[in-house]
Design a protein around this nucleic acid. Structure first.
Lengths: 249, 249
DNA sequence: GTAGCATTGTCAAGAGGCTTAACTGATGGA
DNA sequence: TCCATCAGTTAAGCCTCTTGACAATGCTAC
């Protein structure tokens, strides 16, 4: 049971975060001024120090929130389809990632953008024990999600041999085993391709660099990209058919 | 003939830019303080205003420089191979892009990163007449480069039909003709894929998100990605063979 | 050679941001 | 009811960007 004080405190913390995000959204920049957040809340700037360790603390909290939200959405999207439909899962994860990024561009920039002024975007990574940034944590998580999809499909025997004619013959020799997490080099390469393509498309779109095509064009373009990546990974097509929602013939 | 004053002025301007870039490099952030640049040059901060219109003016100049440098490198790399070798040209352009980004990460971030605080990254675009940022100019330029490669190959008849089974059937209807620049929808889609994949890989690499593989692994990975994209575009393989430098069998 | 102008740079100062310290009023548990 | 804790304020220090006034230097034209 939370005391009344804890409740109001949590509410204030949330209000500060929301105000900061709203300000980022309105000014189109992720570099928000603490004093502006305070002003928007009709509060004095030093008051915020009761809740966050200054500007850096606030930004850090926003990044953690964003990362948690992203992970939750992706896992939720994935788990709505059975393990036996890895293609559908891949599609669902890809769309969840894109939709999160487009709906919350500021959070996307916070997590994946370059380091901000006066804010060292590094943390003690729980997983690896090394000093890492949240963007690296997110990248690791994304790769792990892809790896698990491939592994599930392999175990079920639904993954066709990869049509990778472009694998450098000496790649296996140069990749150290402990970084493959059990995947073979060709699969690992394919997964890096997937991650780079998805992330690249979404980054360009979030930054407005694909704006010469309207949203109703970028949507099928993205789906086309995903379909290609599914083929590249050797996953079966989504059960739902293609385009998504249309039952397969 | 430049007067002595013009010469020293140009030298000072260059020194300021170099100092700013060096500071970005050393502090790992693109958000440089004007006063720090001045301090590094043993100069007072207001003195910089004789050369640039404040912080924003300096950053703007750095972005323009970066954009010019990138375009020059890419064109130079492309023109070292004949038009009749579009695959080789694609590879050369891709490598030039990556090498520029890795060698000058700060400039890459300046051009493609999110908008900086207090710096509205928009300009009157010379080409389109609309208000655009330098990142969009760079994106447009990159797409144009890809388009020209495809067109050259088409004219020479060396481009094989695309293996695009993933083209949404209604995509053509939804794409307005004036945005295709003469390309068919399938080709346009393939080019967006290429651009997204290349840019995504390089963005992840520049931001250190692929660091679990060493540089000697990322290099062949990148080449593998390029090779796949060449196939996707339907371009012939580079004349030099594969891996690059190895004569084709 | 020198007078005069343009250029370069410094110092002083204002505005505004982040942050700490000291202080006041309110809350809520004992 | 008492009082420790919390929430929030003002004041102040330090830093930044930026402008304006002023000094020094260099160039140029007579």
């Amino acid at each position: 049971m939370r005391t009344r004080r804890e409740t109001t405190r949590a509410a204030t913390i949330q209000e500060i975060k929301d105000t900061a995000l709203a300000r980022m959204r309105s000014q189109g920049t992720v570099d928000v001024r603490l004093s502006d957040v305070a002003r928007d809340m009709r509060m004095s700037a030093p008051g915020l120090y009761r809740y966050f360790d200054g500007r850096e603390g606030l930004l850090s909290a926003l990044i953690v929130d964003a990362l948690t939200d992203l992970a939750e959405r992706i896992e939720k999207a994935r788990d709505q389809l059975p393990v036996s439909d890895p293609g559908g899962r891949f599609l669902a994860v890809s769309r969840a990632y894109r939709e999160w990024a487009l709906a919350d561009r500021e959070s996307f920039t916070l997590v994946f953008g370059p380091a901000l002024a006066g804010f060292e975007k590094t943390h003690q990574s729980h997983a690896t024990g090394t000093v890492d940034g949240p963007d690296k944590a997110a990248a690791l998580r994304a790769m792990d999600a892809l790896r698990s999809l491939a592994r599930d499909a392999d175990e079920a025997g639904t993954r066709r041999p990869l049509p990778l004619t472009h694998l450098p013959p000496d790649l296996a020799a140069v990749m150290s085993d402990d970084l493959l997490h059990g995947a073979d080099p060709a699969t690992e390469l394919a997964m890096v391709h997937c991650w780079a393509s998805l992330h690249g498309f979404i980054t360009l779109e979030v930054n407005g660099n694909l704006n010469w095509h309207g949203p109703d064009v970028r949507e099928p373009m993205f789906l086309g990209l995903v379909r290609l990546l599914i083929a590249l990974m050797g996953l079966p097509e989504p059960r739902d058919g293609w385009p998504p929602g249309t039952p397969a013939p």
